Amino acid sequence: MTEVNWSRTDLIDESTEVVEHRTKHQKEKLEHTGGVSIKEFVDGRVKVTKVIVDQNGQEQIGKKEGTYITLSVPTLTVDDHNGFEQLEKSFVKYLDDIHKDIEITKDSKVLVVGLGNKTITPDAVGPFAIDSMQNEQLDNPSDHFVMYAPGVTGQTGFETSDFIGALTERIKPSLVLVIDALATRGSTRLCKTIQITDTGIHPGSGVGNQRTEVSKEVMGVPVTAIGIPTVVDSTVIIADAIENVFRSIAARIEEKGKPSGKLSVSSYTPDPDKRVDLNLIKPIFGEWSTWSPEDRLQLFEEVFSTKPERLIVTPKEVDVWVTKYAILISKCLYKWMDHKVK
């Protein structure tokens, strides 16, 4: 197959997955150079991935030098109150962690920028978060936050970074917080993940509409990006669906004749974390059924690259997800500020 550059993701650990699935030589080279430090652990129901990229790592995985913290609840649903509570708790904790070297005094200002198009729901996390913060300001006033939703270049005709740069120069904040919607290359991450990074952000990069970056190098002050993945490429959905079908059929064949299969009183659902031998379905579907998920994804990306099926997909409940995350981010920023200043 012709290799296609897969770039529709803004999540650092998905880039790490690309590295981890390369050749043994490249894995050893990454470990030897020490360019990327990866720590993964579970905090309650929240899966935490902390990635620190240095200059060598930046060249190897194509992600900017800095710290990336990804918080994910794989089983999260829109009405999962416990899941959102745990995600909220972890978010405040790691906001504090990533800003531990930034001093916020009683006179400091923090510029909070909500990026995105308010009229397009999957892209409205940023503006909705600003609206929620303005509502929060009525009940919990703070002199530290300056809130701004600049819209998108298609609406204003100006680069978003120019607006933010002018405002930063005027108010001289100690920190700029940028909130935006992201793209993911894994359907299990969709609306179930928050990424925090001190590297700033390239608005629109996840869907191929990259604008001027908003970063410390451009703004002259520390910039932290907070992102929620709300869209995924349709080819990912196709690849994930076929992977699930293959795993389910292989697991059923494997369970056939076993007591666990005979005693089942409902439809058999394989454990997603259990290793399944896909060679069992090779006689049915052929060689490609044993390919890695990455190879199948590469195939679909190549086949559908110029087809109308090449779509950007978002959950049907995206309006609920976006509203919930806007409220969560707003509450957490006020909690973090109260803790940070004290």
Rank of each mutant, 00 (worst) to 15 (best):
K109I: 05
V48H: 02
K64S: 07
F84K: 00
K24N: 09
D101Q: 10
E40S: 12
V110K: 00
K27R: 12
E103I: 15
K24W: 15
N82Y: 14
I98A: 11
T49A: 10
V113L: 05
K89T: 12
Q26M: 07
T75C: 11
S72D: 04
V113D: 00
K47Y: 11
F84D: 03
F91I: 00
L95W: 10
I98F: 14
K64Y: 07
I102A: 01
Q55G: 11
I69A: 03
Y94H: 07
T70F: 01
V46N: 02
R45I: 12
V46Y: 04
L95G: 04
V92W: 03
T67K: 05
F91R: 03
N82H: 13
Q60I: 15
K29D: 06
P74G: 09
D107C: 00
I98N: 04
K27H: 14
K100Y: 12
Q58F: 15
Y68R: 06
I38R: 13
K89I: 12
I69R: 01
K106H: 14
S108Y: 11
V51D: 02
E85F: 09
G66S: 06
K29H: 04
V78Y: 01
D101S: 15
F91H: 04
V51L: 10
L95Y: 08
K27Y: 11
L30A: 11
N82G: 14
D96V: 08
H99P: 00
G44V: 11
V48N: 00
S90E: 08
I52E: 02
V42R: 09
T75I: 12
K100M: 10
K39M: 11
T75V: 15
T49Q: 06
K93P: 04
F91T: 04
I52F: 05
T33I: 15
V53E: 00
E31T: 13
K24P: 13
V42E: 06
S72G: 03
T49H: 09
S72L: 02
D101N: 14
G34Y: 06
L71Q: 03
K24I: 08
G66E: 02
